[in-house]
Computed example of a mutant assay.
Amino acid sequence: MTVLLVALGGAVGASARFLLDRWVQRHSTGFPLGTLAANVLGSLLLGALVGTSWPVFPLLGTGFCGALTTFSTFGYETVRLFAERARLLAVLNVLGTAAAGLAAAALGMLLTGA
C-alpha cells in the first residue's frame, strides 16, 4: 500500500513540477527560475510535513515533494550556465537554491510547529 501512495504522490508531483516550470519559464529570461520555484516550494511543503502521521508522509512527502523537487535538473542547469559562460548566474543559482530551499524548509517547519 505504501508503494502505491508514493507512486500516486509522485505522479501528481511530477505533473505539478512540469506545469510550474512551464508557467514560470514563460516569464523568465534564461535563469532557471522554474526549477528554483519547484525546489523552494517542495522544501516549504516538506518542512511543513515533518512530524505528520506516517500514512500521509509517503503520499505527500516522499511521493509528491520528491517528484516536485529536482536535484538532477538543478545540477544540469547549473552546469549549462557554466558552459554558456554565465558563471555568475551559475553561482547565484547554487547559492540561491541552497539558501532559499533551507529557508523554505525552516519556514514550513515553523508554520506547522514541527
Rank of each mutant, 00 (worst) to 15 (best):
V56A: 14
N93I: 14
R26E: 03
G10F: 13
S72W: 12
T70K: 01
G101C: 09
L107M: 09
T70S: 01
E84V: 09
F71I: 08
F31P: 10
V6H: 04
R22E: 05
W23E: 02
L36Q: 13
V24Y: 03
L107I: 11
G13K: 13
L36W: 06
G30V: 01
A106E: 09
T62G: 07
L59E: 11
P55S: 11
S53K: 08
A11L: 09
G63V: 10
A104S: 00
V40K: 00
L44H: 04
L89D: 12
F64V: 01
A83F: 00
R80L: 14
T2K: 05
S43D: 02
G75R: 11
T35V: 04
L5S: 10
L110K: 15
A100N: 06
T52A: 10
A106D: 02
G113E: 03
V79N: 01
T70I: 00
T112L: 06
S43G: 04
A14T: 13
V24A: 06
V79L: 12
F18N: 06
V3R: 07
A16M: 05
T97R: 07
T78G: 09
R87C: 06
G42D: 03
F57D: 12
L33D: 14
T69Y: 05
T70C: 02
T2E: 11
P58A: 15
R85N: 07
L60M: 08
G13Q: 10
G51K: 04
